[in-house]
């Protein structure tokens, strides 16, 4: 009897042990399986939520070194040349006041001057004209423009916007990187809520990129072309009687009026 009891007890322990062993194995297998399948999902959710929530209230510039952990390499500056020398970005502006006998003719002359230097006329009014002249030839343009009439006043400003330009370039670059990250993240989202949040953030970042690019273009335009405002003050032609007329009739017959009116192109 005792032997039977001991046998039963031994069988019971062995069974319990086997059961425990099997349970443990099963748990381990489940855990491993769970680890393979569930862990990435959890990771995605966390990253999506964490990043999306964190991004909504932050600007791109602050994000670049925060949650996403991406940034430009140390020392990298988009405008830097191979020799790490930053190209200076200068905005040239100038204003001239000229006394001219023929404002209309002077305007045309100034417009021709600007186009001849590779620039253009930004705006034109009766007594003023605004020229955009390539920065590299701004001084030359200003000096030439000053000769169109009698110079009354002159103002020149040169503003260094290198820092602003480099900052904008960095912000654009980082915003683009952020956009790429978000797009990649969106592909991995299997949760509607997270996907919506990422999508919303992506829209905001795209808009910010457009705005930054527009600012960059505008600044680039300002640095590429200087702005020269020329004010034209019409002066009356010299009164004929105020000076003695020269007794050389051929001088009076000079000019297009006589040249073309007397047998030239008609």
């Amino acid at each position: 009897m005792n032997a039977l009891c001991r046998w039963r007890a031994a069988v019971s322990r062995a069974w319990t042990f086997s059961l425990c062993l099997a349970s443990s194995a099963l748990l381990l297998a489940c855990a491993a399986s769970y680890g393979r399948s569930a862990a990435p999902a959890e990771s995605r959710d966390v990253s999506a939520e964490g990043r999306a929530d964190g991004l909504v209230s932050n600007s791109v510039s602050t994000l670049e070194s925060r949650a996403l952990g991406f940034d430009l390499d140390e020392g990298e500056t988009p405008s830097a040349s191979a020799g790490n020398e930053i190209e200076r970005r200068l905005v040239h502006t100038g204003a001239l006041a000229l006394a001219v006998p023929d404002a209309s003719g002077a305007r045309a002359q100034l417009a021709e001057l600007a186009t001849g230097l590779g620039g253009y006329v930004q705006s034109e009014r009766d007594a003023a004209i605004v020229l955009r002249i390539p920065s590299a030839r701004f001084r030359e343009g200003l000096e030439s423009a000053a000769k169109v009439g009698r110079e009354l006043s002159r103002r020149i400003d040169v503003q260094d916007v290198t820092e602003q330009y480099v900052d904008l370039e960095l912000r654009v670059k980082n915003a683009r990187a952020l956009r790429d990250r978000l797009e990649a993240l969106l592909q991995k989202c299997d949760d509607v809520k997270s996907a919506l949040e990422v999508e919303r953030e992506l829209t905001r970042v795209r808009l910010e990129i457009e705005q930054l690019e527009a600012q960059l273009r505008s600044l680039g335009q300002r640095t590429s072309f200087g702005t020269l405002e020329v004010e034209l003050r019409q002066i009356a032609h010299a009164p004929p009687r105020s000076t003695a007329a020269l007794p050389f009739s051929w001088i009076g017959s000079l000019g297009v009026e006589n040249l073309l009116g007397r047998g030239g192109a008609e």
Binding site: V100, P101, D102, L246, I251, G255
Partner: peptide, 28 residues
């Protein structure tokens, strides 16, 4: 044209500019 002996090239420069630019509104 005949030019008085004393009239230099500078004299004629001024004379033609005065006629065309100042009196008749040509732009240089």
């Amino acid at each position: 044209h005949i030019s008085p002996e004393e009239a230099t090239l500078d004299f004629w420069k001024i004379a033609v500019k005065r006629e065309l630019a100042e009196r008749r509104g040509y732009a240089i």
